[in-house]
């Protein structure tokens, strides 16, 4: 039983560290702040969660504490990325786009609405 838990934990640790790496690679490669937030938030949330749960599985005494850490990460990461996205458009950082002009209609609308208030 212990053996199985250990192997499962090690697999989760490897997956987690790979996703953490991909998240960081994402914020390095993506062209603008919104895309960086997308890559940074999603990949590091799952990466951190799976790494910490992995450690909790290898070390069963720590499972309770690692579960608290995981819940905290799952709740706090989307909130901070939402706040950052809001601050990015309010400080008028234009989103990168390469498709049609109308992909930005909603952006212009929300900026105008923001200025009128």
């Amino acid at each position: 039983m212990n053996q199985i838990l250990e192997i499962l934990g090690l697999i989760l640790i490897i997956i987690g560290s790979i996703f953490l790496f991909l998240g960081a690679l994402g914020i390095y490669r993506m062209p603008d702040v919104y895309n960086r937030l997308q890559a940074g938030t999603k990949a590091t949330t799952l990466g951190g969660m799976s790494l910490i749960i992995g450690v909790g599985l290898i070390q069963p005494d720590w499972f309770w504490k690692s579960l608290i850490l995981v819940i905290f990460i799952a709740l706090s990461n989307p909130i901070s990325s939402h706040a950052l996205a809001r601050s990015a458009y309010k400080s008028k950082i234009k989103p990168f786009f390469k498709g049609k002009e109308e992909d930005l209609d909603a952006y212009k609308e929300v900026v105008e609405r923001n200025e009128n208030n």
Partner: peptide
């Protein structure tokens, strides 16, 4: 933000 999660 990303570095904080990685650091944790």
């Amino acid at each position: 933000d990303t570095l904080t999660t990685i650091g944790v």
